[in-house]
Amino acid sequence: MSARDALARRLARRLAHRLAIGAPLAWLALFFVAPALVLLKISFSVSVLGQPPYEPRFDLSAGFAAFLESLRGLSLDSYALILQDDLYLHALLGSLRVAGLSTALALLIAYPLALAMAHAPRSWRPALILLAVAPFWTSFLIRVYAWIMILKDEGLLNRALAASGLLDAPLRLFATEGAVVIGVAYAYLPFAILPIYNALDRQDRTLVEAARDLGASRLRAFWSVAFPLSLPGVFAGALLVFIPACGEVVIPDLLGGPETWMLGRAIWNDFFANRDWPAASAAAALLLLAILAPLIAFERAQMREEESA
């Protein structure tokens, strides 16, 4: 083999290596970082009447000096506005409440399911995992619409309750915050099941046997050993439900009532009804920050734990 061949091969390998790292990075830059930068830029702009409804606009064809000049047009006004606006505070509290309640509900349903999956015969498990994520195979919108059919006054649930004689008057669920909580918990349930299942499945079964051997009943062995060791999975599941729930738009819109006021809806409202793009962008930027910060903190904590283990 000639030296030139070897060199060419080494270069090709290095190129392939770069591509393997570079492709996902480029993807992230194009579809995540770039839109986020656009959003940030708009959030620092000023709302005006016109198309687009904000200023300044960056026009690179006008030259660098003009670009620098246009930077002076940026302001923090939108951030000041939304931080002072009671409506946004209200929306933030509404989002946190709905996200918190639906996360709790999702975890309560997910944990027993994950536990049953982890203790099912090994040959059943792939099928069970498939079943857990099966709802993702139908449209998100259709599944939320289906909940309207279940929850409305003359819906499935109320008819079943009336037929069983448990209730005289229909239970008012549809167009309440309760309906939103149920809808969000349902929509993100698989995100709660899978990490908990994973944590339980990886557990060393002899630990529970040791607890039993040392005098613990089945229930006590679970609470003192299996459950605490599954908490990282519970925490991951909680984050995976809570984060998208905070920014959820469609479910509160379809299942919620007029009093259900969440951040996603507030942002939507500012964008499309008020045409105040800078304020909506500032709110979105703050929401993004509020979601990323705990996520990064969680990631760091996990890395530290893995290093110390």
Binding site: T206, L207, E209, A210, A211, V225, L229
Partner: peptide, 8 residues
């Protein structure tokens, strides 16, 4: 236990 099964 062979693995000692200490509670981590």
């Amino acid at each position: 236990f062979q693995s000692y099964a200490l509670f981590p």
